[in-house]
Amino acid sequence: MSRAVGLALFLGGWELASRARWLDPFLFPPPSGVGWVVYELVRSGQVWPHFRVTVTEALAGLVLGTGTGALFGLVCAGFRPLAQVVEPAMALLNAIPRVILAPVFVIWLGIGMASKVALSFLLVMVVMFFATYTGIREVDGRLVERVRTLGGGRREVVREVYVPSVTAWVASGLKVAVGFAFTGAVVGEFVASSQGLGYLLSFAQSTYNASLTLALIALVVGVILLLFWAFGSLERWWLRWKPEYRSRQAHPRALPRTVRPAEQVP
């Protein structure tokens, strides 16, 4: 609630400042103007081909990156010698701002969609690698022991302990990965491309069109927020057993007494 008020105040203040010309409307177009540009972009249909390209790149990067990262994480967690090679490489990739590789991908893969998918893939893959790898390594040994002593074999241990505990990590990683997937696609387009939201953004910037620039940013942010919300809901449902998502707390006093102490006394 207070967040909505804060946002409204911020946008309202900006609108006012821009209209009253305290801010240069050429550089700081009022939010209503930006909203109008977004509306025009969507209504005229100009933005759709670009939008489709960016979303396709991001989703391709997300799917490929998640699959590859998870697979690498899985194999590394199960095979130590490989982990000793791969983990430092991943840690290095994680430490550097991976978007600086965008120009290299353009040189290697051209200005088409492939270079953007590659960048998006790289950003996502590292995140999902660590989510899976840590997820498997952090599996609670006591739960493994518990399932074994309850009569579970190897398969039951995997199904009852490993899979749920790794999916918990992957689910949280996925939310970060969605943002990264779009970062990769848009930044890749920004560097060199002939289509996509990043391309439009680069065009808007080169023509000093602040309204269009802000409108495109709003559009990208909108899509990411939508996906965040979708993945957030999925995560909340998937991890509903977690204390931070719990909806109710059974109070000890609510305990029905069917075992009566009196029956104990001989």
């Binding site: 739960l143 309850l150 009852e160």
Partner: peptide, 30 residues
Amino acid sequence: PSPEVGILFQDDALLPWRTARENVALPLRF
């Protein structure tokens, strides 16, 4: 581990992603 032997550890290592009923049903399913 043998089906004749039950073990109760200090930490009640229940599966956090399973409900109370599912936890109790687990060894029966096994």
